[in-house]
Design a protein around this nucleic acid. Structure first.
Lengths: 186, 186
DNA sequence: ACCTGAACACCGTTCAAGT
DNA sequence: ACCTGAACACCGTTCAAGT
């Protein structure tokens, strides 16, 4: 009965994310993580159900780091900044970020980000009934670019080139959003 | 000296792809693959350098299955069919396809597909100097969508919905390409 | 309640040996 | 040249035991 916990789920997840950032996803083993926390591997199982649950938690933690887009700016700037923040988060967490493509964004933080996009699209004049689809396509394009970048597909391209690609991507998504306005002619 | 090979690299890769398709990426272990080929695990090392090399080969094999876009059609149809073929390939090889985001498309087959896109963009009127970037963005959008789909991010969406999303995606990419024509006004 | 020690089945990979 | 047998360090996970 009652002895002071030496570790907790929060620390376990934070340390796992740090390990992944420093040495890659493969370096995150139960034993290496335990060693880093000064504990035996089996101690982790009181705080995570298994390794899949550990990675779920780490992805969730990553999502809490998406800063909310700054309020009070016009929608194109808000979405542009949000996209840039998401890309920056990909660069900070290159080995974990690709896991975002493997699970629906159902956590509280993921919902908050999506709601921010919904609001921007509403302001842009996209009709209610089309907002969810437009959000999916826009988010998928941004995530797909960011994952390609940190995953290694653009390994042979310069940072300069990729920055420019990303600017063009944001512009094209802006044009797409405008084309989906209720009063768009066609 | 000379004894008849019981397996070869081609069979190893084909069987590994089949295993991944049937039971997922994690089911592709050196021993399970060897068992399937009727050989000991160590025999594989004469045909692949190690497991990473095995997966590289499997991705390469997947790329050979992208059918070349049918010649003789106008560029929008050609690109639309190519995109649909790539998406279909993702569905056939759901566990291997996401690995495409981890490596530059430098194999012969990947180059062939890219060249086909270049030609279509040329026909569309995109100036030489902009073709490579437009191709990167268009391919990234299609890959990002397909990987999200087979990776599980759209797990909560119906096939109907995703088919519709994909149609809208193709249309938006078509509009983007047209907006990049030399004679586009702006 | 929280952590440990011992154990299990499995993983990728090496090396020397067989034909 | 091609495959095998034995071995190694490591992996995730379980169970019973300690405090």
């Amino acid at each position: 009965m009652g002895r002071p916990p030496r570790i907790n789920r929060g620390r376990v997840l934070a340390e796992a994310l740090a390990m992944a950032d420093e040495d890659g996803l493969d370096a995150v083993t139960m034993s290496a993580l335990a060693r880093r926390l000064g504990v035996t591997p089996m101690a982790l199982y009181r705080h995570v159900a298994n390794k899949a649950d550990l990675l779920d938690g780490v992805v969730e933690l990553l999502l809490t780091e998406f800063p909310p887009p700054p309020a009070g700016l016009p929608w194109p700037e808000r979405l542009g900044i949000l996209a840039a923040n998401i890309r920056a988060s990909a660069h900070r967490h290159a080995s974990i970020f690709p896991l975002l493509l493997e699970r629906p964004a159902t956590t509280t933080d993921a919902r908050r980000t999506r709601r921010a996009v919904y609001e921007a699209l509403g302001e842009a004049g996209v009709p209610e009934a089309r907002i969810a689809q437009v959000e999916r396509l826009v988010s998928t394009a941004v995530l797909g670019f960011a994952v390609s970048e940190v995953g290694g597909r653009f390994r042979n391209h310069s940072r300069r080139q990729l920055d420019d690609d990303f600017d063009v991507l944001r512009a094209l998504l802006g044009d797409f959003i405008v084309s989906q306005r209720a009063d768009a002619r066609n």
